[in-house]
Design a protein around this nucleic acid. Structure first.
Lengths: 253, 253
DNA sequence: CTCTTTCTATCGTATGACTTTATCCGCGAA
DNA sequence: TTCGCGGATAAAGTCATACGATAGAAAGAG
């Protein structure tokens, strides 16, 4: 199941050659085609596998090593790092994951993480938001209302809504979780795209209630409502995943 | 105030030349010596500035670009990325931050993040821990008890304690926050090192209470106690920071 | 069988040439 | 004057090649 959900803020330029190499290697690693501890194709041999110079290859490896996916030790070879070392919160790594192996466990784990951080972020946002923070959140919400359900611009607005809340916390390390959260949302919305409007309306109401709490500067209320939003979103996403699994099962039978 | 707290799990090999270059660039960026949007020294010009080949320099840039610190575009040059793009949760970036500019705001923000995620992590750990998970947590706690306060091994055990709790959640994306949490702890312990034993004993009790709740598989209790632990730790760290600021102020006066 | 030496494969670094691309700037048309 | 087009240009990107350093394997000595 290969999905092409483009990451919102990827650091990898796919136009560049090294970027393509990095992408190929990353997908191979994440799918498990190259298991942990496996040696990557030798820097000289790789000419045969993929026609690319050592320079481009090495730069790709450096890029991946920064994300913990590979581990290059002099002379002994470049090895795939153990899964624990991967930076699963990195936007690129997350995007590759969704592309390569978007299993339910990952979705659940990410929603779990959302459930831990987004309500807290909403609380802080309600307490600390500046006027411009609020404008940004409101503008994003309007974008969700004024565009058709599941349209490109609606999704963008949804992501902007959540990102703006993180931004309003004034906590840069916390804000670094925004890309991961957005990637999760984006992927779950992608699943729903062709679905009926019921969830969309419900989600809209959830968002509005969070916004309202932030307007009122009511931190606890904002946190509680954000919890509700995330839980609703998780439930509908899981239902769709179950539907998919069912469809696949019947297709096999 | 340059501190040399070595990061627990850094991906950068300081023995290698490109690693040193990456480090230099990173510190310059994080301190603000190279402000956002600033051009990095030209790939050809840099020969004059630092005596290193283009290859090594480019690999350093690739490494940093993966962490969002810089952004290279043909013709326009390699620029320092805006602060929002930095991955502040990356172990390397965090380590550079502590080394370059360990200001109080960052500490507060990181503790805030801890306060959001660690209690939740402790809850999950209590609910889901396996026997081996528990052994790991207990072993770490023993390491804290059996070694002298603020000794190298004690600090390591403290970090291992928190990391083991994250590991016990069985949620890989959540586990990716462990390095950031550990870096925070490590830095705060570094501050306290020469300090009296009162905080240490208090902290030990906090840890023991968390452990106990996890043993009992009481999620809510574990979460509550972890909150207490983090808050205690924050308070003592802030007190020490205040003490430092005072000392500095009186030194100036 | 073990220890030591040698050897080789592989990464790290350096260099120069060439390619691609985005920006700038000037020209000409509307 | 303004706008749009296109070429010049500078900088990053890519490639090929070469050499150094060393980890780990293989071979040899005891």
């Amino acid at each position: 199941m290969l999905l092409h959900v483009r990451a919102r803020s990827t650091r990898l330029n796919p136009d560049r050659l090294f970027g393509q190499v990095a992408h190929r290697l990353a997908v191979a690693i994440i799918t498990g085609a190259s298991p942990a501890g496996a040696l990557l194709p030798n820097e000289d041999d790789l000419k045969g596998e993929i026609s690319v110079s050592r320079t481009a290859y090495r730069e790709a490896v450096k890029f991946l090593s920064g994300k913990g996916l590979v581990e290059a030790r002099p002379k002994s070879g470049t090895r795939v790092a153990p899964r624990e070392a991967w930076n699963l919160l990195d936007p690129d790594v997350l995007a590759w994951h969704f592309e390569a192996d978007p299993n339910e466990k990952l979705i659940r784990d990410l929603f779990e993480l959302r459930l831990f951080v987004e309500p807290s972020a909403a609380r802080l946002a309600a307490q600390r938001r500046s006027a411009t923070d609020l404008q940004r959140i409101e503008a994003a919400f309007r974008g969700m209302v004024e565009n058709p359900p599941y349209a490109e611009r609606t999704v963008t607005a949804d992501l902007a809504f959540h990102e703006a809340i993180f931004a309003a916390t004034g906590n840069p390390p916390l804000q670094c979780l925004a890309p991961a959260v957005c990637a999760t949302i984006q992927w779950s919305l992608f699943l729903k795209a062709p679905d009926d409007r019921f969830f969309f309306t419900a989600s809209l109401i959830d968002h509005e209630r969070v916004l309202e709490a932030i307007v009122q500067r009511d931190g606890e209320l904002a946190a509680a409502r954000m919890s509700g939003l995330v839980i609703d979103s998780l439930n509908s996403t899981l239902r769709l995943l179950a539907g998919r699994a069912e469809a696949n099962a019947s297709k096999i039978a």
